[in-house]
Amino acid sequence: MLISPACRDALEGWLIHRKSLDGVADNTIEAYRSDVLGFLNFITGHFGDATGLKPLERVKPTDMRAWMASERKRGVAARSLARELSSVKSFYRWLAEREGFEPTAVLATRSPKFQKKLPRPLAVDAARAMIDTVETQASSDWIAARDAAVLTLLYGCGLRISEALGLTFAQAPLPDVLRITGKGGKERIVPVIAPARVAVDQYLAVQPHSLLPDDKLFRAVRGGPLSARQIAKAMESARMQLGLPATATPHAMRHSFATHLLEAGGDLRAIQELLGHASLSTTQAYTAVDTARLMEVYDNAHPKGRKHG
Rank of each mutant, 00 (worst) to 15 (best):
V177P: 03
A205E: 14
A248D: 14
A205I: 10
H251Q: 03
M235Q: 11
A252G: 04
G166T: 06
Q171V: 05
R229I: 08
P250N: 06
G185S: 13
E263C: 01
L159R: 07
D214R: 08
A228D: 15
V206C: 11
C157L: 10
I189G: 00
H209G: 07
L153A: 06
P195E: 09
H251V: 05
Q272C: 05
F218P: 00
E163S: 03
T181H: 00
I161M: 06
G266W: 08
A170Q: 10
L211M: 13
A246K: 15
L261H: 05
A199R: 02
H255A: 00
C157D: 07
Q272V: 09
G265H: 08
A196Q: 13
A199Y: 01
M240I: 03
A228G: 15
A246R: 15
S237N: 13
D176H: 14
P208Y: 09
G166R: 01
Y155M: 04
L280G: 03
S256K: 08
G265Q: 06
A264W: 02
H277K: 07
H277F: 06
D267C: 11
P250E: 01
L268S: 06
K186E: 05
L274Y: 02
L212V: 07
E187M: 11
I161G: 07
D147F: 07
H251N: 01
K216A: 09
L268F: 06
P213D: 09
Q230W: 11
K216D: 01
G276C: 05
I271S: 01
P195M: 10
Q241T: 15
H260Q: 14
S256Q: 13
P191E: 09
H260V: 06
F169L: 03
T249N: 05
L211I: 10
T247S: 15
Q202S: 13
D176G: 13
P225N: 14
A194V: 12
L268R: 09
P195N: 12
G266P: 12
T168A: 00
A238L: 02
A248M: 11
L268I: 15
A252H: 05
R222S: 13
S237G: 13
S279V: 09
A220T: 05
